[in-house]
Every structure is written in C-alpha cells, then in structure tokens.
Design a binder for these strands. Structure first.
Length: 431
RNA sequence: GGGGGGUUUCCCGAGCGGUCAAAGGGGUCAGACUGUAAAUCUGAUGGCAUAGCCUUCGCAGGUUCGAAUCCUGCACCCCCCA
C-alpha cells in the first residue's frame, strides 16, 4: 500500500467532519501515516440488526480499510450482556441470553457486509464473548479491576450524568461496563496489535478507559478517535421516524423506504450526510452544494445521497427496485400495468385481498375502499380524507364522496392502487 | 398521623349545573405554496345510517327536568406540616 494513501486518512476524516475528539493528534497522525494500523470499533447486540446510527463508525472502519489499514469489527457478545450506560439516562433492562444470541447472529452478518474480508489486508470480525468467557470474577477483579481508580470512573460523563440525577442512579453492573470495553481494547492490542479504537462521540469515556488501562497494564500507547453522532440541524437524531428507526436490513426497512428516507433529507442536513456517510469526493460534494444553490428543484444532492447509500446497503438490485418504485409512485396515473410489476414496485406497501365480486354490481364505495385498505381509521376519517382532496385511486384524485370503484379502476389484472395524501399507499387486490 | 390539591378527549391544559363532543397549545392527518425539502398559510382531528343520533371528562352510585361541572364512596397521584 502506498505511503501517501496512508497519509490521507486523517485529513480525509477531518474534512468529512468525521472527527469529534482524538487523543494526541500529532502522534495519531504520524502513526497513521507511517504504518498500516489495526483499528477497531465495537457494536453491542442491543437489537437484532444495525440501524443508521451504527453507520457512521462503520463507514469510518471502511474508510480506514480503503486507506490501507486493517479494521476489526467487534461484536459485543459479552458487553451486550451488561449494557453500556453511555448516553443513557436510566438503567437498562438486561437482555436475556437467548435474545443476545439472536441479536448477535443478526448483526454479525450485517457487520461483515461493509468491509472486505478477502483482500490482502482483510478485515477481522471478533466477538468479545470469546475472550471474556475465560475470566473468572476473582481473576478479573485482581488483574483488571485493580487498575481502575473509582474516583476516575466516577468522573466519566456516562457515570456522572446518571449520579447527578438523583432519580436515575446506576447499578454496579452498568458501572462495570467500562472495564469490559477497556479490557477489549487491551486484548485486541495484545492479540492483533490494534492501536486505535474508533466510535461514536458517546464512546469517548469508554475509549479513554481502555487507553488508560493499556498504559497501566504496560501494553503501550493506545489511541482513540470519536466521530460525531448523526444528528439533524434541529438536534434530533437522524434515522428516527414515527415508525421507528431506519434499519440496514431489507426485512426491517425495505430498500424503497430506505431510499425514500434519504431522498427526503432536509437541505440543511444534506451536506453533513454526504460527507459523513458517502464515499463521494470533496469535489463532488462541493459541486452538489453549488447545484443545490442554483437548481434546488433538481434534488441532485438528495438523489446522490439516496443512491449511494442504497447501493452500498442493498446492492444494485435493491437500488434499481427502489428507484423504479419511486418513479412510478411519484409519477403520473397508474394504468395498464401487470400484477407482477405492481406487486414488485409496491412490495412494502400494505395490501388487502378482497373478493372480485365487490367490484361487480354497484361496486365498492371510495369510503369503504379507504377503510378496507387501512388508509382510514374509520368511515368518518375516510370521508374527511376524500372531502379534503386527499384520496387517490391509481394516483388520480377522487373528490366525489359517492365515487364507486368498478372493474375499470383496476390498474392491472387484479390490483387497485389507493393513496391517501402525498405518500401513503395501499393496494387492494381483487381475487 | 394532620392539612390541602389533583385525575378532562393522542399529549399538555381550560372548563366548575344547561348554549360542551368540551377553549387553547402540541402532535397527527389532509390541502395550498414548492423542489417527494424547510418555513409559512388553510382545514380537519370520538363514532355512526352525518341538518340527526350514539358513546366520552379516574371508577361506582346519588341529587337534578338536565352533570365534565353538585353530593357519597372507592382507586391512584401530588404538595405542605409532623
């Protein structure tokens, strides 16, 4: 790997805004410039999949690998059993062993997807349970715990903020969390020569705990680097919607929904997202910024963001499908399509099956149709929607309350596409 | 242990015998404007067979022609004094 490639990683992370805090900047820069380094980031199995909050540190590992360094992804099979108090305002409920095992399976597969395990300098996937399980409580206390001054532990933000609120408090279990993560770092240093840990800004306390432990246990100087949390301009976390988090797995968040999430990113946040999450160059991103000033209606930035992330997470096929669905959904009237096309395009749109007979005779009233499709909570609600001009059949607005669906309203062999408002779709299948 | 206050529609919060399906705000939904953005503006927001009817104001009773509003009991919450 060329030396100049190595040199660039720090400055790249810097212009991308990926650096929140680092330990001794000078030394870290020269370390990264001189030799390929092994870098690690940990992910606890708090849920059975990764969401976009995990994305920033993952992309960071990916960038390190592309720059010629060796990334280690750590799945927290052990730490997940304890629960990280960092960034949490109250004590967490412990997950059951089965739950953790299940979650671990889910995230291990996904973690692998963003890194290259085949190259000359392959990424490494580890599970901290593998080394933590060897310890007995007594030996851990003697060999590791002895190096932790409680007064320093109490000074950590994650602990202090909890103790300051008299209501919240903290269990001894959570209090001990930082020992485990600190030891992970030391272990990875010993086993893989890993000198650098990266993570979200809320991990700073845990990372420095590891560095401190390394010093006391005499494994040498360790380094830490944190990235900012992905937030919107109004301070809210990115990736949260009314329906919940945006996940990386296609089962939890469809490629279409994923694509649309990014496509709808606020102008105020888009630059930040492009820099933190994509692999577009500085030039491309600033060109997009200019285009956004002059031709905002083209939504070039949003499109590039949505495309590059969907491609990375869901592959070419996922992207093609998402893009095609977006074209049809936000396009003109839907007609003369085939069932298979519609089913594919509206893959994650709720659908209801009805008897073909309901279309015969007088047909199905628009009010009933909206209720059946789940687009209205009650008939009153459906009436309101139509009244206010928010009801659409095959993307054509229906304003007449007495409108009845008949065979002529089928967009394909058996499907009618209903919509409420701008974006809420549902299918009725008449079989 | 003594004294006081509270419980209202998704949330906060007015109402304190009829004109109350219940002010106002938030949220949500829809519309307009736009760029599938933001901001803004408008409308809607218990249900139904929708000029009408039915069900809602902690729970159960009672007073009254009539109660979210008054009385009694019960449950839960909060504050002050000890």
């Amino acid at each position: 790997m060329a030396a100049n490639t190595l040199q660039n990683i720090y400055s790249e992370l810097d212009w991308r805004g990926s650096i929140h805090q680092t330990t001794d900047r000078e030394r870290l820069c020269s370390l990264l410039a001189e030799n390929p380094q092994t870098v690690y980031a940990g992910f606890d199995p708090t849920s059975d999949g990764l969401h976009i909050g995990n994305f920033v540190p993952l992309m960071m590992l990916r960038r390190f690998q592309k720059a010629g360094h060796c990334p280690i992804v750590l799945a927290g099979g052990a730490t997940g059993m304890i629960g990280d108090p960092s960034g949490k305002s109250e004590e967490r409920n412990l997950l059951s062993a089965e739950q953790i095992e299940h979650n671990l399976q889910g995230i291990m597969d996904e973690l692998g997807q963003f890194l290259d395990f085949e190259s000359a300098r392959p990424a490494i996937l580890v599970n901290n349970y593998d080394w933590m399980k060897e310890w007995s409580y007594l030996t851990f206390l003697r060999d590791v715990g002895k190096h932790f001054p409680v007064n320093q532990m109490l000074a950590k933000e994650s602990v202090k903020s909890r103790l300051d609120q008299s209501e919240a408090g903290m269990s001894y279990t959570e209090f001990s969390y930082m020992l485990l993560q600190a030891y992970d770092f030391v272990h990875l240093r010993q086993a893989y020569g890993c000198n650098l840990q990266v993570g979200g800004s809320d991990q700073w306390g845990n990372i420095t705990a590891g560095i401190e432990l390394g010093r006391r246990m005499g494994v040498g100087t360790l380094h830490g680097l944190t990235c900012p949390l992905l937030t919107k301009s109004d301070g809210a976390k990115m990736g949260k919607t009314e329906q919940g988090a945006i996940w990386l797995s296609a089962e939890k968040t469809s490629p279409y929904a994923f694509y649309q999430y990014w496509f709808n990113t606020d102008d105020a946040d888009i630059d930040n997202c492009l820099r933190l999450l994509t692999e577009l160059t500085e030039e491309e991103i600033s060109a997009l910024g200019e285009d956004r000033q002059t031709n905002p209606q083209n939504r070039q930035s949003q499109q590039r963001l949505a495309e590059s992330l969907t491609l990375l997470v869901h592959g070419q096929q996922g992207l093609t499908g998402a893009r095609r669905a977006s074209e049809v959904l936000f396009g003109a009237t839907i007609s003369e399509m085939s069932d298979s096309d519609l089913t594919e395009i509206f893959a994650d749109v709720p659908s209801e099956k009805l008897s073909r007979d309901t279309l015969g005779g007088e047909g199905l009233s628009i009010v009933d149709a909206l209720c059946q499709a789940g687009l209205a909570k009650s008939r009153s609600d459906a009436r309101r929607t139509v009244d206010q001009g928010g009801a659409y059949v095959n993307n054509a607005r229906i304003e007449n309350l007495d409108y009845r669906l008949g065979p002529g309203d089928l967009a394909s062999e058996t499907v009618v596409v209903l919509r409420s408002g701008k974006k809420r779709y549902a299918l009725l299948k008449f079989l």
